[in-house]
């Protein structure tokens, strides 16, 4: 017995493919769309089609871009000598939110993970090496995730980039600012101890 009319079933099926959406969330979203007017449904559908049509990867940093270059690469006030290497476009957003970085980015589009069949060739590593090799970059900050795959990717990149004469740094990991030491979990505190620095 079919619980839903075929068009609803089709919508549910598509919604459930989205990350973080289970059967219940899919149902809630589908009923919300059905209850709303035709215009809002059309706006949603258009937005989805439009984003796929107009967004591509920036030719320089492989972040999402509307044109050939993303807004950051096209911005003449950004410092091209400072390069921040991240895994995903959403990491660019995270670093941008800090307001602390005025350089440019390179988006690897993942991290090395042999189990998943992802090696340097599946990432934008060659493009990174070419970019650094062309000169003009003084420091490469490796800001991949602090997990096993991110750390290994950082090690790999450091070996490739250092011979090219750039300063290679790794973002620190450790205690959250504004937190009390006694509430930090042991693993984070352990990492913070390990990455301690001498005071001037």
């Amino acid at each position: 017995m079919a619980f839903y009319a075929p068009p609803i079933a089709r919508l549910l099926e598509e919604l459930e493919r989205l990350p973080g959406i289970g059967p219940k969330s899919a149902q809630r979203l589908a009923y919300h769309i059905l209850r709303g007017d035709a215009e809002s449904a059309a706006r949603l559908a258009e937005a989805i089609v439009e984003v796929k049509r107009s967004i591509r990867f920036c030719e320089r940093c492989f972040n999402f871009a509307e044109g050939e270059l993303c807004d950051i690469c096209a911005d003449p006030t950004r410092d091209p000598a400072m390069l921040c290497v991240v895994e995903e476009p959403r990491d660019v957003v995270a670093v941008e939110r800090t307001g602390e970085f005025r350089g440019t980015y390179h988006v690897l589009q993942g991290a090395i993970s042999p189990i998943d069949g992802i090696g340097p060739d599946q990432l934008r590593v060659r493009e990174l090496v070419d970019r650094v090799g062309r000169g003009g970059i003084v420091e490469a900050i490796i800001a991949t995730d602090p997990d096993i795959e991110g750390e290994t990717t950082a090690l790999y990149l450091a070996r490739l980039l250092k011979p090219l004469g750039v300063r290679v740094t790794r973002i620190a990991s450790g205690l959250p600012v504004g937190g009390d030491l006694e509430y930090a979990d042991e693993v984070t505190l352990g990492k913070a101890l390990e990455a301690r620095r001498e005071m001037e």
Partner: peptide
């Protein structure tokens, strides 16, 4: 586990190093 996956693919020393 990751390193074993690489060894199965007969990876190069550069890939194995990290």
């Amino acid at each position: 586990r990751q390193r074993n996956a690489l060894l199965r693919e007969e990876a190069t020393p550069t890939e194995l190093e990290p």
